[in-house]
Amino acid sequence: MTKVHVTTTVNGDTVEFLADPRETLLDCLRDHMGLTGSKEGCGTGDCGACSVELDGTLVCSCLVLGVEAEGKTVSTIEGMANGSELHPLQRKFIEHAALQCGFCTPGILVAARKLLEVNPDPTEEETRYWLAGNLCRCTGYDKIIRAVLDAAAEMRQEVA
């Protein structure tokens, strides 16, 4: 199939790539841009391991076509830290041992960042429902939820 030239912005950088119209945004990120931090766990939008923001909307990048990124802004796990300074969520995930194998972690961090953007003071239940689309098979979610709530508390203090 004839490839389509796509120009988009990923983590602040302008990037261009040729996409087969059948390829997902996830495939394009991973295979054309070398951004392998977003993971494919299911390819059907059920596991959330490929979570990215597309023009500020949290999406499963396995459910978006690469050509749909034309002219848009994509932010992935690779752009979450500010240089060498980790985002508070990233730091809290390490401190709380909120990852075991770490495969679901990029997607959960991207989804949790969006949660704290729209709701800086979520309850445990709100956090659990927000992250219900991000599967983790290792942790039982306990330490993930604690890390998100702790990061939220820290970020609120910074703002204050």
Binding site: R30, L35, T36, G37, S38, K39, E40, T76, I77, E78, M80, A81, L86, Q90, R91, F93, I94, E95, A97, L99, G102, F103, T105, P106, L109
Partner: peptide, 21 residues
């Protein structure tokens, strides 16, 4: 004690390389 895991940074930044990576 409970120190940070040595592979933590790579795993929260998307740099850790798994099978398909």
């Amino acid at each position: 004690t409970r120190p940070n895991r040595p592979d933590g940074l790579d795993k929260v930044t998307g740099r850790a390389r798994y099978g398909a990576d």
